[in-house]
């Protein structure tokens, strides 16, 4: 599964450069480029070779961890891309922690206390949450919690006057590795607002999915069996029902994580978050095609990894599924 999907992705990213109408080198260099410059670039990038040879070289480079060179910064993409990836992964991770924790619990309690006040309020919030424009939510958060109340920083990953010593570029982890708890807290504070902005839509989707899945499961025969045993509500809901109900929710969690990874540009822009979305977005305005290619490929790679993790979780939860 993993291999063919990634292979397909390389075809797509490879095609990006060649699907652009006109001569890629011309497009990259712009209208005013001289013929000589174009020839040079074609020579450098191997653009004058047949497509399949170019693709072969591309794959060969990729397998060696070579993502090419940025046209703008002239540095190895493989070297400069990691901090951006780490920033996005960290933000996605915390956004999903928020989304999964709040979403599943709201869904569980809503289903458990169906038609209660909690249920109505939670589902109203979920309904609003799904249709909430991220930029609006982000700006509101900044206005209330940063500008007015001054509780949380509005932008960035850390206090730029007191930067962290990066090891993995996952700043929370880095701070903890250095046993630097005050910096860890600073970094966490920076994560709160963007995580909520980014996590709200998945949270709302997960809440609704969990609720409907729980309601479905609660009707099943084995739940009646557990009730007939004399079990309490907690065992019924959190042991028997939840484990069954979480299976369809897992799919949604996986998909939403992927969506966040790829679609965080808006949030990253609002919150000045130096993530992969910003990296690619900036590259677009500079026609930095190798960077665009690599950015998309990296996101696709993590998308596939997440799906793999979800599949593994299925087999862990459900003994009927075997690969």
């Amino acid at each position: 599964m993993l291999i063919p999907v990634l292979f397909g992705m390389t075809l797509i990213t490879f095609s990006i450069v060649h699907l652009i109408p006109g001569n890629p080198a011309q497009v990259i260099l712009g209208e005013t480029a001289t013929q000589e410059a174009i020839n040079n670039l074609e020579e450098n990038m191997g653009l004058n070779k047949p497509y399949f040879v170019q693709y072969g070289i591309y794959i060969q480079d990729l397998l060696q961890g070579d993502l090419g060179t940025s046209l703008r910064s002239k540095t190895d993409i493989a070297q400069e891309i990691w901090p951006y990836i780490a920033a996005t992964l960290e933000l996605t991770f915390f956004a999903m922690i928020f989304a999964v924790f709040v979403g599943t619990n709201a869904g569980i309690i809503s289903a458990w206390k169906q038609n209660s006040l909690f249920d109505y309020v939670a589902m109203l919030i979920a309904l609003v949450g799904v249709s909430m424009p991220i930029f609006w939510l982000g700006l509101m958060e900044q206005w209330v919690f940063s500008q007015e109340l001054g509780w949380l920083p509005a932008t960035g990953r850390e206090n730029s006057r007191d930067p962290i010593e990066p090891i993995t570029y996952f700043y929370v982890l880095d701070a903890l590795l250095q046993l630097d708890f005050s910096r860890a807290i600073t970094v966490l504070k920076h994560l709160i607002l963007p995580s909520i902005a980014l996590g709200t839509i998945p949270m709302a989707i997960i809440a609704r999915m969990t609720r409907s899945s729980m309601l479905e499961v609660m009707k099943s025969d084995y739940i009646r069996t557990v009730e007939a045993k004399g079990a309490g509500q907690f065992i019924i809901v959190y042991k028997h029902a939840l484990k069954n109900a979480v299976i369809p929710v897992l799919t949604v969690i996986g998909l939403q994580t992927g969506v966040l990874l790829g679609g965080a540009i808006l949030t990253e822009t609002i919150f000045g978050w130096p993530g992969i979305g910003r990296y690619v977005f900036d590259a677009i305005s500079f026609r930095d095609y190798p960077v665009i290619q690599s950015g998309i490929l990296v996101v696709a790679f993590f998308f596939v990894i997440i799906n793999l993790i979800v599949d593994l979780l299925y087999t862990y939860i459900d003994p009927r599924i075997k690969y």
């Binding site: 084995y222 007939a228 004399g230 079990a231 459900d318």
Partner: peptide, 22 residues
């Protein structure tokens, strides 16, 4: 709850679905 499963027990029609599959 103290009576269910303790003093009165119940079994159902569908043995296929009456046990939790997980």
């Amino acid at each position: 709850k103290k009576i269910r499963g303790n003093e009165i027990a119940m079994i159902f029609q569908e043995p296929m679905t009456s046990l939790n599959p997980l």
